[in-house]
Computed example of a mutant assay.
Amino acid sequence: MNTATNAIQATDDSAESGAQQIRDAIRDAIVERRLTPGTKLSESDVGNLFNVSRTLARAALQALSYEGLVSVEKNRGAFVAYPSPEEARQIFAARRLIEPGILREAAAKITPSEIQHLKQLLLEETRLMGERGQTARRAEIKASGDFHLTIAAISGNAIMQRFMDELVARSSLVIALYGQSTISSCGHSEHGDIVAAIERNDLDQACHLMVHHIAHIEADLDLRERKSQGLKEAFDV
């Protein structure tokens, strides 16, 4: 490979890394609900915010659209996705199917240090639940999602880990839109029960608890279809 080819490869690698960093930053903002569904994400605004070209901004937004987190609309631009009630149901149905299997894989190879790490995550959730303010709330939401992602990482299945990365992010969008209560997006005590079942090697119970836990999250959503109203009906005149 000659010098010119090396330079081109280095430029391509740098561009890919830059787009990935922007993608990760926007994804985190969506997961933590700092960016709400429907928020416009123009290439120029994203480029200016991260001090990169519109080409890099476009690549990052396209990557997010592949994951279902951003919707790109012709002649309108990119927006944080606005999942429908049916899409929300499908996301949680997928989680009920996938997460028990991931949990079994993780439990089959989990080490004492990894169990301790899960317990540390629970302690962090407890600490954040006792704090007030938007910053603490966002951190609590992220910690809740990290619990599920950590189990996926322990499983050692990279494909399933990527699936969970997307599902947790899209679940956060759904909860931001349809969640009815101010409780954590994942029940903290239920996380503790799952860890306890894994630790005593009761995998059937751990899987049962995981399915119940996901159903509990979904039960807090208001997924009723709403009919569009006209202007007069909306203002009751």
Rank of each mutant, 00 (worst) to 15 (best):
L103I: 15
A88T: 09
E125N: 10
A78R: 11
R138K: 05
C186W: 15
M1I: 05
S184C: 06
T126I: 15
A176N: 14
R95C: 04
R23F: 03
D28A: 04
L121Y: 10
E114F: 08
A219R: 11
F79D: 05
A57I: 12
L64F: 10
Q21F: 00
L121P: 06
H212K: 05
L121F: 07
F92W: 02
T11H: 14
E140S: 08
Q90Y: 07
L149M: 15
Q9R: 14
E16T: 02
S17K: 06
I98F: 04
Q90S: 12
A158D: 05
R95F: 04
K119E: 15
A94R: 10
S228C: 00
S171E: 10
P112L: 11
E124R: 14
E86M: 15
S53R: 13
T150Y: 08
G192R: 01
H212F: 01
R33M: 04
G77K: 14
E114V: 08
P112N: 09
A29L: 06
L49M: 13
A196Y: 01
L122H: 11
P83S: 10
P100M: 08
H208V: 01
Q205M: 12
E124W: 06
F79N: 04
E125S: 06
D222N: 03
M129N: 11
M160N: 12
E125Q: 13
L118P: 09
F235Y: 01
F79K: 04
A93T: 13
G77N: 14
G230I: 01
A176D: 09
S14C: 00
S228P: 01
S189A: 04
I91F: 08
P85A: 08
L56F: 15
A94I: 07
A108N: 13
E199K: 07
H148C: 04
A152P: 02
K142Y: 07
E166A: 12
G68N: 10
L177Q: 13
S171C: 03
A10H: 10
L103A: 03
N201P: 00
A29N: 04
K227F: 00
G192V: 01
I217F: 01
A29D: 10
G230E: 00
E16C: 02
S144Q: 10
Y66L: 10
S228H: 00
S42G: 11
N157S: 10
E99Y: 07
A176S: 15
A59K: 12
T126G: 06
R170A: 08
E124Y: 05
E87I: 03
G47H: 05
I183N: 15
R23W: 03
V72K: 14
R89W: 07
R104T: 03
D165N: 13
I26V: 13
I98A: 12
L103M: 05
A4I: 14
R54I: 11
A197L: 00
H212T: 06
Y82T: 15
E16N: 06
A143T: 15
G230H: 00
A63G: 13
